[in-house]
Design a protein around this nucleic acid. Sequence first.
DNA 1: TGATTATTAGAGCGATCTCTCTAATAAGCT
DNA 2: AGCTTATTAGAGAGATCGCTCTAATAATCA
Lengths: 225, 225
Amino acid sequence: MEMSHLRKVDPVKHEQKRGEILGAAIRCFIRDGFRGASTTDICTEAGISPGHLYHYFPSKVAIIEAMIDLGLARSTEKFEKILAAPDVIEALLVDIEETSLRFRPAQILNLDGLAEAARNPEFAEIIERHTRAVRRMWSDFLRQAQDRGRVDPGLDPDATANILIALIDGSRAMPIRNPKLDIKQSVEHLRTMLVRFLNPPDAQSVAIKPRIQKAGRPLKLVRKR
Amino acid sequence: MEMSHLRKVDPVKHEQKRGEILGAAIRCFIRDGFRGASTTDICTEAGISPGHLYHYFPSKVAIIEAMIDLGLARSTEKFEKILAAPDVIEALLVDIEETSLRFRPAQILNLDGLAEAARNPEFAEIIERHTRAVRRMWSDFLRQAQDRGRVDPGLDPDATANILIALIDGSRAMPIRNPKLDIKQSVEHLRTMLVRFLNPPDAQSVAIKPRIQKAGRPLKLVRKR
DNA sequence: TGATTATTAGAGCGATCTCTCTAATAAGCT
DNA sequence: AGCTTATTAGAGAGATCGCTCTAATAATCA
């Protein structure tokens, strides 16, 4: 049978609409969690009908998966930028300050994702793969820094990377546990801890300056320019 | 009107049964989360009927609140023990190893609780109050350790306590992110980081011993006996 | 024992969940 | 224009949710 009067789908528009719906879904999931947000909520937020939603996503979990993919891709991109900065530790601290210590609702999804990964093996696989990638990035950086004498060569790069990742995870809980957190002071102490931890033991000792801190800031780990 | 044929409730049995139901509920919440676990699930796990459940708890949120109360009380108790140990850092590391790094399903509830606190102001209040109590315990300890010259006096006790709490939170994510985590190595690096962070800057530098580590362990923070 | 009440079981109500289905409309082709 | 298909709307099916209600049973008193 010959088909003639065809009408093609516009893939650009379709993808754009999909992105809008995904954005609306993310807002709902931030507000109410994976289980708390209903497909009806998502449709209302996106301004579409229930039936229409399923032209873009086959199921609710497909939406969640798409969101996780997007979030992890952004996370990887972020770490790439941090590790490409001239001063990696400072770049990391800036990121922690802006996205973790200052309460950003989107950070809740990381907690949800970890909790879900602890229950759902499929989610766990995704989280583990992403963690492997990020750990690899950090341990590569640490190895280079060790070669240049900037980081204690006695530290295992993988184990150290795991601890840095744990620190980032933990910092996300800080503004939830303490809404009146002193952000500058927290960053200052995090910097002290990181520098003292990573610096070679024979390097000059790093003092924190609790009062005045214009000159004599802690040692920085500077990348080759 | 005179009552004669009274039958009194046995408060001991009642409380015991309540505890059993709460235990069953906790198992369900660990398995499926606050929202994922239904009252029917809890009844099945506890071996009771739906109607019976509401003789012990007025609602599902009441069960969750009772669980949170229990969990936070245990947590406070745990920190009291850690802070009363002869070597606080070692006691903390033992606890982190046993309850966080070795995957304990119950730890998921901490993630759920933090996520819920970020959304629900009532939960947030509970978490914040508990955090204040724990932070107070740690900062008191840190102040004493500073007075005895064991901890860098330049560190702010409250800010340092917040970071220690964040580290505990972050360590809970480690076995989820990496199921094949090298626990001993992780503990060793955590120890190194903590000791280097807390030690006074003029103390002898602390080297990590990645190969052999029988003698020459890192400095310990020893409590007055 | 008989009166009284605590305890238990389980049916099921109203609300809400995810997802499907039909039908009306908009848009691209010749 | 006229045909075909993509897009949209919305009702509602089927399952499950938290929770209530009635009634049967067990336990404790005089």
